[in-house]
Design a binder for these strands. Sequence first.
DNA 1: CCTACCGATCGGTAGG
DNA 2: CCTACCGATCGGTAGG
Lengths: 223, 223
Amino acid sequence: MTKEGTYMTEDNRLPALEELSEKTTKERIIEAATDIFAQRGFDAVSMSEISEAVGIKKPSLYYHFASKDKILENILEYPIERMKQVGSQEVGTEELISSMSLEEFMAMGADLIVNWTEEPRMEKTLRIIFVEMYHNDKIKEFYSAFIDLTYSSWEMIFTLMMKHELIKPFDPRMLAKEYISFYGNAYLDYFLLRYRPNTSSFRKEYGDLIDRHTAFTVSIIKK
Amino acid sequence: MTKEGTYMTEDNRLPALEELSEKTTKERIIEAATDIFAQRGFDAVSMSEISEAVGIKKPSLYYHFASKDKILENILEYPIERMKQVGSQEVGTEELISSMSLEEFMAMGADLIVNWTEEPRMEKTLRIIFVEMYHNDKIKEFYSAFIDLTYSSWEMIFTLMMKHELIKPFDPRMLAKEYISFYGNAYLDYFLLRYRPNTSSFRKEYGDLIDRHTAFTVSIIKK
DNA sequence: CCTACCGATCGGTAGG
DNA sequence: CCTACCGATCGGTAGG
């Protein structure tokens, strides 16, 4: 968090161009820890193990992070930042809805939800979130906010669809919950029951099922 | 697993009636461990802590269970036995469907699913299952079987409902997945995100939402 | 069911 | 970023 890299640049020269694209030790720690935590969970992983993966000795980790908990905190900043990015680009939903067919919009929506898991770092972080949720208050807060935002977005979308008479009348909040539950359940299945890092992806395993969920939803709500 | 209670009955007399209703130490260990594992997870709980809750010393636990893992294994036998019980009493689904209204049957189905969580021991065991699923193969096996059985049961139910022309035509497997996802998601929310032992219950927190889910489902499928 | 004990490992610190 | 080290705690055993 502070004075990153001061140890390695104490000669005070400007870094060469090549070095700018190299990962800092701090970044390498985060990447290694994300990887190993995603595989075996936070508690089961020791600081020695992380340092070995990075290629340094255990006490050197404490130069970059004050504690094991701080490493986890840093890892969790990533999805929070990514959620803010997605949130800020949310513009013109109504124009989008009236500019395409119901089928097209729903397919686009499904794609957005699936894309969330496509980036490898995000996928590993989501795994950590699901595994550690039961006893980590920061993760609970993040996941709650993530779910609430998703419900509210789709409540708004379905409300607009009704306004434009694209779909039959429903309680939009309830419809959002029904629609999104399918994804929550798929996440539970993927991240807790069947997680095998680097051998598969959410899209590959659930893509077809999600297409069918989209078709099912359209068939039910379409006016 | 073997020779239970031999230490305490080495005088070879028949146990008094009163003793028959008393819990054996082995049972008390299971109950205490279930309680504490449900609260804080398997790895975070020490054998000392369990023994303290029971009122014995740590090494005495090893008279009843060969290892900490064996305690968990014993705890997991409970839901497996309960599932077998429920499975074996599954008779006359078709008569049931044709003997009541769609609304009545769906309300009864929702009740069965919610009842699964009402028994305190089952609730705690379900919490342990959700918390430890990510790294415990036996739990994965159990949960997979539980989910598959649920999907298959509802696939059969919806197939029979179509045969009796109570509901519109659907792919019954897909309809089962859509219907059950709502519960899977509610479990995820309850057991991982909002679990507060002894202060609430699944029925209390999700009863209303599930009634609305049942009504939503009926409104969509009813012929 | 207990006392006494063990090796292993953990997160973290001191001091350079 | 390293060597050397620490106190605490863990699951489990020996022997009664």
